[in-house]
Measured scan of single mutants.
Amino acid sequence: ENVVSAPMPGKVLRVLVRVGDRVRVGQGLLVLEAMKMENEIPSPRDGVVKRILVKEGEIVDTGQPLIELG
């Protein structure tokens, strides 16, 4: 699984990683606000951040690609 998608609609509050960062399974990639709750979106696997597909403040839909892992 190379693309991390939004599990719910919401607003991207914070991106916690940068392109080139090594991440571990379960590590927070970004914080999504949904229904006034902050939800940290975890990495599904170990890898390297290849691309960040959203910006802070952006509104996303369920299933929208957020981050690509390499």
Rank of each mutant, 00 (worst) to 15 (best):
E1C: 14
E1H: 15
N2V: 08
N2D: 11
V3G: 12
V4G: 06
V4Q: 00
V4T: 12
V4A: 05
V4N: 10
S5F: 09
S5C: 14
A6P: 00
P7Q: 03
P7R: 00
P7M: 04
P7S: 05
P7C: 14
M8L: 00
P9G: 05
P9D: 10
G10W: 09
G10S: 11
K11P: 02
K11I: 10
K11R: 05
V12N: 12
V12I: 02
R14T: 00
R14C: 14
V15E: 03
L16Y: 11
V17Y: 01
V17E: 10
R18S: 09
R18C: 14
R18E: 01
V19S: 13
V19H: 09
V19C: 14
G20Y: 13
D21C: 14
R24Q: 12
R24V: 09
R24I: 07
R24H: 01
Q27D: 01
Q27W: 07
G28F: 01
L30H: 13
L30G: 09
V31I: 07
V31P: 15
L32H: 10
L32T: 06
A34P: 06
M35P: 08
K36C: 08
K36I: 07
K36Y: 04
M37D: 12
M37G: 05
E38L: 00
E38D: 05
N39R: 03
N39S: 01
E40F: 00
E40I: 08
E40V: 00
E40T: 10
E40P: 04
I41K: 06
I41A: 10
I41C: 15
P42D: 06
P42G: 04
P42A: 08
S43A: 03
P44V: 06
R45N: 00
D46Q: 03
D46T: 06
V48Q: 09
V49A: 00
V49G: 12
K50N: 03
K50P: 05
K50L: 11
K50R: 04
K50M: 05
I52T: 11
L53K: 12
V54D: 15
V54H: 11
K55Q: 05
E56W: 06
E56I: 01
G57E: 10
G57L: 03
E58L: 02
I59W: 07
I59G: 11
V60C: 15
D61G: 00
T62E: 05
T62P: 02
P65A: 10
P65M: 11
P65Y: 03
I67W: 10
E68R: 15
L69S: 00
L69Y: 07
L69P: 02
G70L: 00
G70S: 11
G70W: 02
